[in-house]
């Protein structure tokens, strides 16, 4: 691999873009796929080009074998994002846990006192109100959003923004009883039934979690299960 190819792939990642490296396994010749273009390998056929684009879109690396040719497509995607609303105890454990699992963790909390308690080293902490912060962060299909504050003033604006976004997972911490009241508020705010059904609450897999760390494990496990297709994308945990 040329140094320039490596640099270009990492630069695309830093911009939040997917890129791919195409390698001819017979001789090691390479092309770079970035911004919808294939750079290098001018002899590449139309069908191989289309397969490379499809691999980038799917986010999955794959081997393409055609008559006498073996092309490997290595997709390098930015990490998925986990946005947490509330700089609370569970966030202190969940954010570093998610970072260890390869996620980019972002914490939103407009309450300075909570933000300043520390425990968020290496995480991106945003002090705006959740609706403003989420508008700027623009959750995409590789983003999970979880509200943790138990305070409707903070949680509800975040849920309204998250449920209206392409985020693949939206979850809310809280009991079944408070969730009933939450669903009623969301309905009153005009959130359609299909969007309300997307909400995971009570959040996390039922593993009998009690401590903040155990609750963080159950939340992260549920998010991974949904992302990997092992669980449905909506409904209560």
């Amino acid at each position: 691999m040329k140094l320039a190819t490596l640099e270009a792939v990492l630069a695309a990642q830093a911009r939040g873009e997917r890129a791919a490296i195409l390698t001819d396994l017979a001789d090691g010749r390479q092309a770079l796929v970035v911004g919808g273009e294939v750079l290098g390998m001018p002899t590449l056929g139309e069908s191989e080009r289309a397969l490379a684009m499809a691999a980038v879109a799917s986010g999955r690396s794959r081997l393409v074998e055609t008559a006498g040719e073996r092309l490997f497509i290595q997709v390098v995607a930015p990490p998925p994002r986990l946005i947490l609303v509330g700089a609370v105890h569970i966030a202190e454990v969940l954010a570093p846990m998610a970072a260890l699992a390869g996620w980019s963790a972002i914490i939103i909390d407009p309450r300075q006192r909570w933000r300043q308690r520390g425990g968020f080293a290496g995480c991106h902490v945003v002090g705006d109100w959740p609706d403003t912060a989420l508008a700027a962060l623009a959750p995409d299909a590789e983003t999970a959003v979880v509200t943790l504050t138990h305070d409707p003033k903070l949680d509800d604006p975040a849920l309204l923004a998250a449920l209206a976004s392409p985020a693949f997972y939206v979850g809310a911490l809280g009991s079944r009883r408070t969730h009933g009241a939450r669903l009623a508020r969301l309905a009153a705010a005009g959130v359609a039934e299909a969007a309300r059904a997307r909400l995971h609450a009570p959040v996390g897999l039922a593993i009998g979690a009690l401590t903040p760390a155990e609750i963080a494990v159950s939340i992260l496990a549920e998010i991974i299960a949904v992302r990997r297709g092992a669980l449905a994308t909506g409904g209560g945990g």
Partner: peptide, 16 residues
């Protein structure tokens, strides 16, 4: 932490 990005970043750092 063992993801593709950090591995490629390490490769780049060593090369530099």
């Amino acid at each position: 932490m063992g993801d593709e990005r950090s591995i490629l970043e390490q490769a780049l750092a060593w090369r530099r």
